[in-house]
Design a protein around this nucleic acid. Structure first.
Lengths: 174, 174
DNA sequence: GCGTATGTTCAAAAATTATTGAAACATCGC
DNA sequence: GCGATGTTTCAATAATTTTTGAACATACGC
């Protein structure tokens, strides 16, 4: 909850035939892991993103798994997450079946998408609930003070709901 | 990581001599817990805040513990957290030793403080690291593409660092 | 169409984070 | 000071989240 100290990325070792992360790649990974932590994005996802971010060329599944030394499952889920949030793009290779990945051009846009995907659902789910709460408070007991607070909360919720969708690209793909 | 479904607050039961949460209080707690989840604030803390938020009068330690049915330890830590982030204020009672708590007037301000306390340290810690990374990339190998990315990242970090402190009240108390 | 390279799923294990509660600590009124 | 009330600490436990890996899908190139 409070800053989890430094916490080095990995005592994991990369699979034999892949280079482990260079010092700078590792440091970048630490950076992304730290930032991701704030939004509750798991370490493995942040590490994958960092790797792509530091790579001049698109990176394929096996390279991710090999260089980061993580399981297939994690790589698959991690790439899915990043894909679903529009944070990475696949570069269809020439005669190969493999997909190769690279970060979406705008990290900023990616972050907004990510943020939205976390916040919007919460706001939406809570909306009716807040209505009920305010109604309830006005109905029965409840001090004016509390009613005032709750009303303000509802106003916020509403405003956030209408502002958020404006903040960027409409729901991606299908 | 993704919306954790509804997840009712508590199968915990309030201690005998305290009223359990009313339906509306409970619903408000769910709301706050949900929002808190986004920032990685633990459920118990959100519940405490919700209780204070829905109470016309300031609430003391025992009432929190009793009505929410949580342990002393949790109440103590929860109140500490909220206190440290300037989200609640103590109302020194007349002839009693007990402290009684109520939410800080501006929830907005509280949120910014909270946000800052999570993000700022991460930004600060990462700053030197990013310098090294960029320097390293420029020094040795590294495609222009990657250097460009990393440089942009550093610029962001720097800008965020100078903007954030402006965003609100300087570090509180001592 | 078939065999295999490429990915995905998902239950079980590991890692992390939150909560509890009993013991230590503090402070107030006397 | 002393006892009582009120709060904090922290090691142990519980709850939650993340990762793993082996079994299962898919579809591509032949």
């Amino acid at each position: 909850m409070t800053p989890p100290a430094v916490k080095l990325t990995a005592r994991r070792k990369s699979r034999p035939s892949f280079a482990p992360l260079s010092a700078h790649e590792a440091e970048l990974a630490v950076f992304f892991v730290r930032m991701a932590g704030i939004l509750g994005v798991p370490r493995s996802v942040a590490e994958i993103y960092a790797l792509l971010y530091a790579s001049p060329d698109a990176v394929d599944f096996d390279q991710v798994q090999g260089r980061l030394g993580m399981s297939k499952g994690s790589v698959s889920q991690g790439l899915k997450f990043l894909r679903d949030h529009g944070m990475i793009l696949s570069v269809k290779a020439p005669g190969s079946r493999r997909e190769r990945w690279q970060p979406t051009p705008s990290l900023a846009a990616s972050l907004v998408t990510l943020l939205r995907s976390q916040v919007l659902p919460a706001l939406e789910q809570s909306s009716p609930s807040l209505e009920r709460i305010v109604a309830g408070a006005q109905g029965t007991q409840a001090s004016p003070e509390v009613i005032e607070r709750l009303t303000r909360l509802r106003r916020w919720n509403a405003r956030a709901l209408e502002l958020f969708p404006l903040m960027l690209p409409p729901p991606r793909d299908a």
